[in-house]
Amino acid sequence: MDIKTKLKTIIVEELNFEDLTPAEILNDVPLFGDGLGLDSLDAVELVVQIQKHFGVKIKNMEEGRTAFQSVNALAAFIAERLPE
């Protein structure tokens, strides 16, 4: 599974979007605010999930703000830091 597909599955399953399928999440839609509507609690949950699934650590929310712009941005952030 590529990073983006895996990310979307994590968003749907771990953030409990019962009314959404992974395929319905667009790559460039903002994850927070008017886009998918994630909030501060989702952000910290995503930090834990990304560490768990990819071994990539998001150190703080300043770093998180850049990474969490969209699925595209998050996938790029992860790809750059994936442990070998």
Binding site: L15, L41, D42, V44, E45, V48, K52
Partner: peptide, 14 residues
């Protein structure tokens, strides 16, 4: 469960 399965750093904030 999240702590026991994924370690202390895997604790779920939600």
């Amino acid at each position: 469960d999240t702590i026991l399965e994924a370690g202390d750093a895997g604790a779920s904030p939600t």
